[in-house]
Design a binder for these strands. Structure first.
Length: 375
DNA sequence: AAGTCGTGGGC
DNA sequence: TGCCCAAGACT
């Protein structure tokens, strides 16, 4: 690792030291330095083509959608499952939305799955099974925003554009000590990030910055000594790299409470589907009450489904706690047993407990059912 | 334009 | 433990 700290201090401008060299020469050298680092330290990931090879646009798109606000670790098995079952965008475009939701269950942000399916349908039916190869064309697809469009254009189609994700925001905001808070600083960070593009290999430049952000320029305790861009990194020189990017403190949502009802009929449990849009849109759930701040247990329990031929409700000890992005939730769980032949109320259905793993069950509902079935 | 939208892991 | 964070998009 060449740290390049041996360059002599400049005598003409005492403020600018070799370690804080922001000369034109250094700035021009950054894209190549970044790519050189990438060639040695790039992560091997399932959706990445081997060095020098062209990436499959479908794999790039699928991975980019899954990786939105989601860790590489969490995405790995889902990406493999999707690629095995639907190897092409056309195959995915011919699948049912329900099958896609089932496969996505557990990964979170379910609007992504709905948009994923809509996008595959659009590419299949309106684009002849081929992804648009321009940023503008990609941006028009469902679920493809400014970041994802730029990422696919650069990585899969070698377009000279720089996607800006959370990693790149962090790296660039430190490099230039951008004081403006996010999201106000986004346009400036985008412009600064583009200065790291060289004449070619835009996709590798972007992935290099992402890998850098994920492994070196981390949110906490960045390993600046190992960074190929350490020279002239303003935040590092100031010694407060960790304080970037600046962002307004986020408020935590208020706790909401409710009740969930696990009705067991032999080896089956009563479920229904949530409305297509909104929280957990289109996913499967057991009947449950409203989720409201300061809702007392009696009010929640009063929302139990009306069923004939069902035992009394038994409240399981404790609660199921879950944390959504914008509020925490506590659900009391009630269990009842239904006689064989008991009809499911309108809009509900019985499903085999043994095949729940195949349902489009969000993890919250997996926790609820496990709590209800447990001792 | 600020709020909505999951989940798991790290410290 | 509680809080922050992760390859953002949509409204």
């Amino acid at each position: 690792m060449s740290l390049a700290g041996a360059a002599p201090r400049r005598k003409q401008s005492p403020v600018i030291t070799a370690e804080h060299d922001t000369s034109d020469a250094l700035l021009r050298a950054r894209p190549a330095a970044l790519l050189a680092w990438y060639d040695r330290h790039r992560r091997t990931l399932p959706w990445r083509a081997p060095p020098g090879a062209t990436a499959d646009p479908y794999a790039v798109w699928l991975s980019e959608i899954m990786l939105q606000q989601t860790t590489v670790r969490a995405v790995g098995p889902y990406f493999d499952k999707f690629m095995a079952r639907w190897p092409t965008v056309t195959a995915l475009g011919e699948a049912s939305l329900d099958d896609v939701l089932k496969m996505w269950a557990g990964l979170g942000y379910y609007s992504r799955a709905r948009n994923l399916h809509a996008c595959a349908v659009a590419v299949t039916r309106q684009h002849g099974g081929r992804f648009p190869d321009t940023e503008e064309g990609l941006r028009a697809l469902p679920g493809v925003g400014p970041y994802t469009a730029a990422a696919i254009a650069a990585i899969a189609f070698s377009r000279r554009t720089m996607p800006v994700d959370g990693n790149i925001e962090r790296v660039v905001s430190r490099l230039y000590a951008v004081e403006d808070e996010l999201p106000k600083a986004k346009p400036r960070i985008k412009a600064l990030a583009e200065t790291l593009l060289g004449p070619s290999r835009a996709g590798d430049s972007a992935q290099a910055l992402m890998d850098l952000g994920a492994t070196i320029c981390t949110p906490k305790k960045p390993a600046c000594a190992l960074c190929p861009l350490m020279q002239g990194c303003t935040a590092r020189l100031r010694g407060d790299a960790e304080s970037f990017p600046r962002k307004a403190p986020k408020k935590t949502g208020t706790l909401r409470r409710g009740a969930a009802f696990v009705v067991i009929r032999g080896d089956q449990v009563l479920v229904r589907s949530r409305p297509a849009k909104g929280l957990l849109g289109g996913m499967t759930e057991v009947p449950n009450s409203d989720w409201l701040p300061d809702q007392d247990e009696a009010a929640a329990k009063a929302q139990a489904p009306a069923l004939k031929g069902v035992s009394r409700w038994h409240r399981k000890a404790g609660v199921v706690s879950h944390v959504f992005t914008h509020f925490p939730l506590e659900l009391a769980v009630y269990v009842a047993h239904a006689a064989a032949g008991t009809r499911a109320p309108t809009g509900m259905r019985w499903t085999q407990i043994s095949t729940l793993s195949d349902e489009a069950l969000p993890n919250l509902m997996r926790k609820v059912i496990a709590h209800g079935l447990g001792d």
